[in-house]
Design a protein around this nucleic acid. Sequence first.
DNA 1: ATCCAGGGGTCAC
DNA 2: GTGACCCATGGA
Length: 303
Amino acid sequence: MDSQQTIIIPVPPLFNFQECLWFLNRNYDDCLHVVTETAVFKAIATPFGDVLFRVGEQGTFVKIDLLQGDSGPECRDYLTRYVRDWFDMDRDLAPFYGYLKRDSRLAYMAEDFAGLRLMGISDMFEALCWSIIGQQINLTFAYKMKRRMVEQYGRHIEWNNQVFHIFPEPEILANAEVEVLRGMQFSQKKAEYVIGAARAFTEGTLSRSLIEALPDFDSRQKALVAHKGIGIWTANYVLMKTFRAPEGIPHGDVGLLNALVGHGIIGARSEKEKIEAFFHDYAGWETYVTFYLWRSLAVKPLA
DNA sequence: ATCCAGGGGTCAC
DNA sequence: GTGACCCATGGA
């Protein structure tokens, strides 16, 4: 009985749960999961209904505990795949670490961030909305806006006197009003973009399966950028987080550029050819090195 | 007040 | 395709 509510997954080499957990927490207030010292709680919508689960570590296993919702075998399989994807557990990082260690500027990352995985956002609609919200504003503020939107439009699960939020469905946000989002400090355009994205999903002109069906990175990027409010940065962010496309470099990203300057890889933000050369050296791992550079921007608080 | 923040759209060339 | 310019909304 109890065993049916627990799933264990052997951890792959070069995997460090605590590093991943720390990234999920950082110093931001993400409303879509709750991180403790040893675990992360998350509620999601599944084909089997809303589910609340906890991901922790047990020896050399990642352990998923089902706390609320369907615990049948199909749902457990779904959650297993979900967590494997979320933590990018099926990737062999050895080649990437090979590149890092040959790069004197970034070699320290292979030690300091050892086992950190590129944390994904498997729900493309969520990834898209989040990247629209995050355009050109600081992350602290972006997380606040996301929280207001999720609390207003999303479902939630209550468990142990705590609330766990689920990202809103496109059908709900498609009928949201710009004025309401403006009240949550969305700019006019940002409100229009999010609602527009939700309508594209409900109308079927945009979906994960549509993008997935396209043959290559360029056509996927192109299909995304065709929508209002989605530029290269936003499209590539989605391709990185949802589809895990290695080429999904968030070109022009302020954090990325700051990290490149900070590591002496470029002298100024405008040095486009040096940036290109840098990513050429990490071919196949462009988004991973971007993720690690983002990670380098966040300083771990002293114990 | 000033500059910055995990950009996008428009419009000329 | 590229670059200049404008836009929005807080944070520090």
